[in-house]
Amino acid sequence: MKLEPKAILQIQKPMEEVFEGIVNPLHMTKYFIAESSGRLESGNEVVWKFPEFSEKFPITEIHTKSPHTISFVWDPETVVNIKLEEQKDQSTIVRVNEKGKELNEKNLAWALENSGGWANFLACLKAYLEYGIELRKGAFDFMRNNSTTS
């Protein structure tokens, strides 16, 4: 059995705007990451830096189909899939799932943590796109000295 952390949220913005908010590092650094070496685009490989971790994370096997899907690998065992669904009211449902790890005690803890992480990602994306609020700013400063891994 493979584990699959998931999160879903509706954002009151058009699908194209939500897609750009996810793939463009100028936006992502306002709600998710501290640094990125480039856009999430098919064929690219980028490196992300999070404010709460000292490590940098390579993002590989990026595939995008604007404005509907984004997928990438940031852990050799898993693939992140983000799907956007336009609604009649011009809002967008965003679904995130991460697949690949086998069921065991260590990976179960990982799945629970990542489900919360993706829910946080979506809440921060919503706050940023709808209201210009950077929810993540300072939210994880307490982790800087307490963690050396993701």
Rank of each mutant, 00 (worst) to 15 (best):
P14L: 07
K101I: 06
E77R: 07
P14R: 12
C124H: 11
E20A: 10
V46M: 01
N97D: 13
K106N: 07
T92K: 07
W110N: 06
N120Y: 14
G132P: 05
T64M: 06
S147H: 11
F121S: 05
F142Q: 10
K49H: 12
H68V: 00
E41K: 15
V80Q: 01
V73R: 13
K2I: 05
T148L: 13
R144Q: 14
P5R: 10
W118D: 01
A111P: 01
F121Q: 05
L103I: 04
N44W: 03
G116C: 05
I70G: 00
K30I: 00
L125M: 02
E17P: 05
N104G: 03
V73F: 07
V80F: 02
N97Y: 06
P5V: 11
F72G: 05
V79M: 14
F57P: 00
Q90R: 14
Q87A: 08
L135A: 07
V94E: 01
E77V: 02
K13R: 12
A119C: 07
E61I: 10
I93E: 09
W48D: 04
V80E: 00
L3K: 02
L135H: 05
F19V: 05
C124F: 09
N97A: 04
S42Q: 12
T92Q: 05
F140W: 13
S71C: 14
N107W: 02
G100H: 09
E41S: 13
T60H: 11
W110P: 01
S150K: 07
V47K: 08
I70P: 02
A119F: 04
S71M: 11
M143S: 11
D75P: 03
L84G: 01
E55W: 15
T78G: 08
G132I: 08
V73N: 12
F50E: 03
K126I: 03
I33D: 05
L108S: 14
S36F: 06
I22E: 00
G100W: 03
E55I: 14
K49S: 11
V46F: 00
K137A: 11
F142R: 12
C124G: 08
E98Y: 04
L40R: 08
Q10H: 15
V23N: 00
G138S: 04
D141Y: 07
P51W: 03
N120G: 14
W74P: 00
K65F: 11
A7E: 02
P51F: 07
E16R: 15
S54W: 09
N114E: 13
K13N: 04
I22H: 01
A139T: 08
I62H: 02
S147Q: 14
I70N: 01
N120R: 15
M15H: 02
K2T: 06
S54F: 07
M15C: 10
F142S: 12
R39A: 13
V80H: 00
T78Y: 08
